[in-house]
């Protein structure tokens, strides 16, 4: 309750032009916004760009905020920024830079791209699942990707998602059902990569059901 009151006060101050209040709101919601953007864009840099664009856009549109959940409003701006970014990418497809040796040969797995934060064995399990899910997510149509990301990754309820993407709740339900079906079909191909995860959960559920 206190948090809600604080947020309302921050919003009021931000609308009145208080930049510090606005920045506090950003700090509160930036992580969820960035993660939603990352799952939709499937690229860290693009997700950061989209989130930054969304923050700037939100600052400009502050006077149009008409109450309700601030998080939903912010996520709506973030998803729109992602749509814009994806549209821009389609118009101007980028070619990844492939480093070359002195002899002009392409370097596979260049050292400067390596993630040195965690060892391969540490990240193996989680990164395989994550990569598989991200791969399947990226393969989904945008409208399905956004819905499943908001419901399953961000944990929003149907009504909030309907507000965020501006569609009726029935559309959210049907899109989510189709998105999950497609994801499940896609992940079937990764069962060998993720045997424990899937078996474990399936077995658990079978026990519960019986």
């Amino acid at each position: 309750m206190k948090a809600i009151m604080e947020e309302t006060e921050l919003i009021t101050r931000a609308v009145d032009g208080d930049l510090d209040a606005f920045n506090q709101l950003v700090l509160q919601h930036q992580e969820v916004a960035y993660n939603v953007a990352y799952r939709i864009m499937a690229d860290e840099n693009a997700a950061a760009d989209a989130t930054q664009e969304a923050v700037i856009s939100m600052y400009r549109k502050l006077d149009t905020y008409r109450g309700g959940s601030f998080k939903s409003w912010f996520l709506r701006i973030v998803t729109n920024a992602c749509y814009d970014e994806l549209r821009r990418q389609r118009r101007r497809p980028t070619i990844p830079i492939e480093p070359e040796t002195n002899e002009g040969e392409l370097v596979e797995s260049p050292e400067w791209l390596e993630d040195k934060s965690a060892g391969p064995e540490e990240v193996l399990g989680s990164s395989e699942i994550e990569n598989a899910i991200q791969h399947c997510l990226t393969g989904l149509e945008q409208k399905f990707r956004v819905v499943i990301t908001l419901v399953d990754v961000s944990g929003e309820d149907y009504e909030t998602v309907a507000q965020i993407i501006g569609t009726p709740i029935g559309t959210v339900k049907s899109r989510l059902a189709r998105a999950r079906l497609k994801m499940q079909q896609c992940l079937k191909g990764f069962r060998e990569l993720l045997p424990d995860q899937f078996r474990h959960i399936t077995e658990e559920h079978d026990e519960l059901a019986s």
Partner: peptide, 28 residues
Amino acid sequence: KEALADMTALKNNMRSLPCKPVPHHFTL
């Protein structure tokens, strides 16, 4: 029943995705 099991597994996997830390603050 089987469909429910698969969907539950999928949902749990999606939920278990790690939360990416923000590369920088997006404040203005």
